[in-house]
Design a binder for these strands. Sequence first.
RNA 1: CGGGAUGUAGUAUAACGGUAGUAUGCGCGAUUCGGGUUCGCGUGAUCCGAGUUCGAUUCUCGGCAUCCCGACCA
Length: 425
Amino acid sequence: MKQSQLFTKTKKESPADEVSKNAELLIRGGFIHKEMAGVYDYLPMGLMVLKKIENIVRQEMNAIGGQEISMTTLQNPELFKKTGRWSDDAVDCWFKTKLKNDSELGLGFSHEEPLVNILSSFISSYKDLPLSSSLAIYQFQTKFRNELRAKSGILRGREFLMKDMYSFHATQKDFDSFYEKMQDVYKNIYKRVGIGHITYMAFASGGIFSKYSHEFQTIAPTGEDTIYVDENSGIAINNEVYNEEVINSLGLKKEKLVEQRAIEVGNIFELKDRFSKALDLSYTDENGKKHNVLMGCYGIGLSRLMGTVVEVLSDDLGIVWPESIAPFQVHLLVLQSGDDENILKEANKLYENLIKNNIEVLFDDRQGLSAGEKFADADLLGMPIRLVVSQRSIKDGGIEFKKRNEEKGKIISAHDLLVLLKPSA
RNA sequence: CGGGAUGUAGUAUAACGGUAGUAUGCGCGAUUCGGGUUCGCGUGAUCCGAGUUCGAUUCUCGGCAUCCCGACCA
């Protein structure tokens, strides 16, 4: 992609109405645009990042046997009345609206009810539930939550992208083993998006679903949650359930726990038969006896995950994207000297060559900009690798190669560069 | 939802109740060309509504919006 054709532009000034680092940098870089409080648009490069995160999560969900579907955002109140979740007293974040004929509708904040309802028309026998592997269904969807107070940029919005998976089991044993596997899957996701080293599985309250749940918390001074981390085991306890009983039950020592602020980047719950009972999702066993299906649910806010990466990995100059989710692997800068056409020609040649080799490259081909401006933009946008073609680099025999997270660059030949970028080639 | 703060060019910021200024962006021209280069000319703004006043960006009230703290967070 040529930067001269990208419709977004970077901004030098931070927006006055954003304090959080993630929103500030993402807006300055042109990744997102604020519509209103807690509501953000994703612009070309922002969407690229989001899609890359989505793909990583999709791969991991598929790897554990998940099947992807897409449910509606418009919600049928009748289903939620059956589980007691239509009332504003029970769920205070509903966005509700009405049809022309005055009947009520909701905008989805979570999808247990509709999915259980769907499955109830497909599951009736134990034969419909796989016993060895579990039935797991997931989707990526925009959720709507009428937060009393949206805040922290894209970390807590009223409209956001979420992956929600729901698992269905005939037996507790089946659920337990799936739930345990899921914990590893989640850890893997955080590792792949570049925050695994500072993300902990935390023991937390289960809200209205169950007594306890597991959260995945990424250490960040700006986080909303307070957790107590045990470095050795990698286990943490959320402030909300931090007490002697929990500490002991997890086999942890109070003296070893370190208090940290953290951002919740995922949450997994055991639902038991809370929803299957209310909506009559059951199966008949070999002996003709009916049982409610057991469930679990597993969420990750993809947009929040993206904001968290920015929040924890950026530096004073801008964003530092991990390779796995960077919109482009390479940011190629051409620095013109006077009217030396040769430099632009060389840079163009390299650009074409990178494209031909399927390397994702953003080419800063913009004319009339100072070197400093291009460097500042490259730092702000945060691609993992910066390449510079200039009079100096050509004189030194090639292209300057610098990683975003390293101080110094080096001169490298076009051939060596391709080997470096495409080790398999 | 309780508390606090703030609304001025596209963006970021000034202005005792008395001519709305500066920077940046944008347009034109020159200059420069490895860390947001320099210069000239131009462009462009007081959230909405009421009140006080000779006169309101400024004071008062209401609305709306945004941010922060708290509460909430399935």
